[in-house]
Amino acid sequence: MASAADATSDEELVTRFPGFPVDFDSAAHYRGRLTRRLLVNRCDACGIWHQPPKPVCPACWSSAVEARRVSGAGTVHLVVFLHQGPPATGVDYATPYPVVTVELDEQPGLRLTSTIVGSRNDAIVIGRRVTLDWIERDGTPLPVFRLVDQQPRSTDTAGDAGAAR
């Protein structure tokens, strides 16, 4: 499907994502971000997804890998709250900044790391269900997550220590 983003030159793509690993293998993913489509590589031969983008399918070595749209729905797998970190527009570490790795529903072990918006930090725990959302940073879309359930899944929260966030 052709779109304005697909016409974005390599030169402009690199300019829009300073510091990101934009190259031949990941360009489709970053072009997708420009139109708020979250694209992840999937193998046309065997159907396995992989992340981050690689030039061949690690499972079957086919080079027929395509950046395909994922729903962005998933489950929080890892949580960090940054009390300090790299400077970024709109990020104030005075409130510890959440960084989460989310296991996407498309495939067990397929994960994407970003932040969570719209929630208090004490609600962000491993096991929470999330959905995809987008914010803008310095004029470029950034995929982020938003909590969906009111309560964590009871089987997946044992032992989470919530102190000192």
Binding site: F17, P18, G19, F20, P21, H77, L78, V79, V80, L82, G85, P86, A88, V91, Y97, V99, T101, T113, S114, T115, V125, I126, G127, R137, L142, V144, T157, A158, G159, D160, A161
Partner: peptide
Amino acid sequence: GGPGPETIAGAVGYTAWASRYMHEHG
């Protein structure tokens, strides 16, 4: 000049898995 804070590449990765360790083992 990295890609911003939304990553666990590098040192942050150990912190992230520390959260998982505490979660799994209590």
